[in-house]
Every structure is written in C-alpha cells, then in structure tokens.
Simulated scan of single mutants.
Amino acid sequence: MSKYKPYLAMICVHSIYAGMALLTKAALNQGMNHFVFVVYRQAMAAAFLVPIALVFERKKASLLSFQLFCKASLVSLVGITLSLNLYMIAISYTSATLATATTNIVPVFTFILAVLFRMEIFSIRTTYGKLKIVGLVSCLGGGVILALYKGPSIRFLGHHQASIKGVGDAPASGHEPSMRDWIIGTFLMLSSNLTWSFWLLMQAPLLKVYPFKLSLTSLQCLLSALQSALVAFAFERKASAWRLSFDIKLLSVIYCGVIVTGVTYWLQVWCVAKKGPVFTAIFTPLSLVITIIFSCFLFGDLFYAGSGLGSIFMAVGLYCVLWGKNGEENQRHDDEVISREEAC
C-alpha cells in the first residue's frame, strides 16, 4: 500500500488545486473584490504557517540579513503578490477551467527562465534538446489557442444548471465572456504563470543561503500579505468590500489560505523527496481533468472546444519537456558512471 501513497498524495494535491480555481471563481462571482481576496488569502496563509514555523524552526532558524530580506521581499513582490493579483483579475475575465489549463505551462516557463538565468544547461544539438524545443513550441501554441480560439461551447448532461454561479467556463446564467475579455484574461493568466515560475525558480538560491523552508515560506506569505494590502487599499477603500460573512467568500479565503498553501506544500515536498520533481510535475494536467468534471459534469457549465484543444497542446508540450529533461539527467548520470569506471 505504501508504494501507492505518492500517487494518492498527488491526486489529493491536484484535487485541492482544482477546488481552488472553482471556489475562487465562485467568490468573485458573488461580488468579492479580487485585490481584497489576495490580501485575506495571504494573511490567512501567514497566520497558518507562522506558528508552525515557530514550533519547528524557532531554535534552528537564524536571523535574516538585510540583503536576504530585500531579496525575499522582491521575490514575494514579483512571484506571489503580482502573480496572485494577475491570477485574480484573469479568472474574473475567463473561467476556472482556463485558469487550471494554463498551469500546464508553469514547468515550461520555469525551464525557459532557468535557461535564461543560466541555471539550466540546454543544447539543441541533442535528441533530448530537440524534444524540449518541440515541447516549448507545443506549450506556447496551446497558450495562443487558448487566447485566440474559443470554439463552440459544449454543455454536458443536457441543460443542468450550476448550483454555484460562475465556476466553469461561463456562469450558469448562460452569459459567455466576450472574445475581448477572453483574450485579455488569457494573457493575464499566462503572465501570472510566468511570475509564479519566477518564484519557483528563485526558491533554490534563497534556500541555499537560508535553508529553513518553513520560516522562509512564512516570511514570503507575510510579506505578500502586506504588499497586497497596499495594492488593495489603493484600488478599494470601501469598508463593505472588506467585510466577510459566513458564506462562499469566507470559505474560499480559508480554503486558499490554509488548505492550498499549507496542505499542498507539504504533500508536494514529501512527494519530491520520495519520487523526485519530475514525478510531481507529471501530474500537473490532472487539475484540469478534475476541474472539468466538477464544473461541467456536476454543475452543468459550458466548456469551450478551444479550451480542450489548447489544453491538449500544453499537456503534450509539458510531457515533451519533462521527457527531454529526464532523459538528459539520465544521460548525464550514465556519463558520470562511465567516467568513474574508466578512471578506476
């Protein structure tokens, strides 16, 4: 049974991510301001993680230098604050399904940034290098399809209406986003994924200098909450917009702040330790499948052919990049083994 635990953990992780997109869209549909949502989400995440960090790393963690604090602030500003605010604006223009579909491009964006920052070796002359190129082109092509082609809408299970408005590709009322909104939302969502990829890439150099994962994550959540508060106050000063009651808005904030930030973080770290980073990345398209099931089959919302076609291109591209990267790592390992044997 233990050999199946990593698989069950990743299914749980991507089920949680699918729920995040659905609940976020539902909260926005109920009138919650997207800037305010980010503030509450990050504040909730910080409130959840800071006590845990104090319990487990209080005696081990050292004080941050001013230089490291500035780096953490910059990474939080670009990789979390900007990323989440772009995500919230984008999902208000588009759908939960598209938001989940575009996450397939995160590993690809991360790879591109790693090459640009010279943190990743890349050669187009090798077979695996060419495979990566095919993957990059396929992923970027999928992004263009998602943005520029909606295609015919598909409604599953007849005309069943959603019990939560606006969780799928279109609200249950039948209103469809305009093409202009769809294009703007898609490019904002891709921009959000790009900045999130930057955050993922910058964790390794930060952890080399400050190897206390919980403390560093808690600090970044706290910094992003403060940064997001400044942004939100600049755009929304009505007291009514900040008021929370026991409804879908509060549920979404708690879910995104505690479950998404806390549970998925530890499950993914555990899976990386057990199976490696490639194993965890392979499951990325699963979030889309789960989102489609809930938003279309259970809520009866619309699903566009363009979303499906673009998602296929992105998933194929993702696996090509992962295949190429894994192949290069195996080849490098074999070469090292052969070199050691020849030296002996």
Rank of each mutant, 00 (worst) to 15 (best):
Y93I: 06
T102M: 05
M32L: 14
I80Y: 09
F69G: 03
N85M: 08
L77R: 09
C70G: 11
V55P: 01
L82Y: 06
N29Q: 12
G31P: 13
A101I: 02
V39A: 03
F35A: 05
A72P: 06
L77P: 08
F66D: 09
T81E: 05
S92P: 09
S73M: 15
G31R: 12
Q67H: 11
A61L: 10
H34D: 10
N33W: 06
I80M: 10
S83I: 05
F48Q: 10
L54C: 02
L64C: 11
T97Y: 05
L64V: 10
I91S: 00
A96T: 04
L28F: 14
A53G: 02
T100L: 08
F69V: 05
A43D: 08
P51N: 04
L84F: 11
Q42P: 04
K60Q: 13
C70N: 11
E57H: 07
A99F: 04
F37K: 05
S65M: 07
S83V: 01
N85F: 08
E57C: 09
A72Y: 08
V38N: 08
A72E: 13
A43R: 02
M32E: 10
G79K: 00
T81F: 02
T100M: 13
S73C: 14
S73W: 13
Y40F: 14
A72Q: 14
L64I: 09
P51E: 11
L86D: 05
F56T: 11
T94N: 05
V50W: 04
T102H: 02
S76F: 03
L86Q: 10
T102F: 01
L82Q: 03
V50N: 02
S95Q: 01
I105L: 14
V78Y: 04
K71T: 12
A101M: 10
K60D: 12
V75G: 07
A61V: 08
I89K: 13
A27I: 10
L86T: 03
N85A: 06
L54Q: 00
A72L: 15
L74M: 12
L84Q: 15
T103K: 03
M44K: 02
T81H: 03
L28V: 08
S83G: 07
E57K: 08
H34S: 11
T100S: 15
I105D: 04
S76K: 13
F56S: 02
F56Y: 12
V39M: 07
G79H: 01
A96Y: 04
I105Y: 06
L84W: 05
S92E: 11
A43V: 03
N33C: 08
L54N: 01
S95F: 01
M44T: 15
S65G: 14
A53C: 02
K59T: 07
Y87D: 06
N104F: 02
N33P: 09
K71E: 14
Y87W: 12
L28D: 01
R58C: 12
R41I: 09
T100I: 10
I89W: 09
A53D: 01
T97S: 13
L64F: 12
T103C: 04
A43N: 05
F56N: 02
T102Y: 00
L68D: 11
L68T: 12
L63V: 08
A47V: 14
L74T: 09
M32K: 09
A45K: 10
L82T: 15
N33F: 07
L49C: 06
L82I: 15
A72W: 04
T100N: 09
T81G: 01
K59E: 13
A27Y: 02
A53H: 01
Y93H: 14
K59W: 06
Q30W: 03
A45S: 15
Q30R: 08
